[in-house]
Simulated assay, not measured.
Amino acid sequence: MGVLDERRARTGRITSLPSGCTPHGVRSHVGGHEQISPTVAVRIRRHAFIEGSYAALVRVEWNADRRRYELTESGRVVMFGGNYAGTSDSRLGELSERYLGHRSMILPIHDRIED
């Protein structure tokens, strides 16, 4: 899991999770070394018409040519499809509080694709 913070600009740059948020999951590549990491990122964006930001889980994949993670559906409109991810682990709440200013123990999954 990584963080795609698009509150200021849409760079497509997926950064590592903050210290203490160690992911568990499939094998991935970071800095030329194989690591364990799921293929999702927490995407953080600003609301269009109200103050504040929101977070959602989006799919990412490793681009071997660019040697970085990128959105799986880059260039397509991906939105909430009715699914949520949640946990009782406090690290998700801490992560949301860090980026959003409030704790959230569930996140919407943006898995619906519109062309």
Rank of each mutant, 00 (worst) to 15 (best):
R45S: 13
N83Y: 00
G2R: 10
A56T: 14
S96P: 02
T15E: 14
T22S: 07
R66I: 14
S28H: 05
M1H: 13
S90P: 00
G82M: 11
Q35P: 00
A9L: 05
L71M: 15
E6K: 10
V3G: 03
I109R: 10
C21A: 15
G52H: 08
I36D: 11
T15Y: 07
H29L: 08
H110P: 07
E61Y: 08
G32H: 12
T87Q: 07
G12M: 09
F49A: 03
L92R: 09
Q35H: 06
I106W: 11
Y99H: 15
E94K: 12
H24W: 12
C21D: 10
E34T: 05
L95V: 06
R7F: 06
S96L: 15
E51A: 11
P23M: 07
E94G: 09
T22F: 01
Y69R: 07
I36P: 03
S19A: 07
I14M: 04
T15V: 15
G93A: 14
L71P: 08
T39K: 07
L57H: 02
S96G: 07
T22H: 02
R7L: 06
D5I: 13
V40E: 01
G20K: 09
S53C: 06
R98G: 15
G75D: 01
L71K: 14
A56K: 11
L57E: 01
G32N: 13
L92K: 05
S90K: 04
V78G: 10
V58H: 06
R27S: 12
V58I: 15
Y54E: 04
A48Q: 13
E73M: 04
E97P: 01
H47F: 00
R98K: 15
A9Q: 13
M1S: 11
A56L: 13
V58D: 02
D89F: 10
R103D: 05
R8I: 10
T11E: 05
G52S: 14
I113D: 03
V60D: 04
G86R: 04
L107I: 10
M105V: 09
M105H: 14
E34H: 02
R91H: 08
V30F: 00
M1T: 13
A56G: 14
D65W: 10
H110M: 11
G31I: 06
G81C: 00
E114G: 00
T87L: 11
I44M: 05
C21I: 13
V77N: 02
G2D: 01
S28I: 02
R76V: 01
W62D: 05
L92N: 05
R46H: 06
T72V: 07
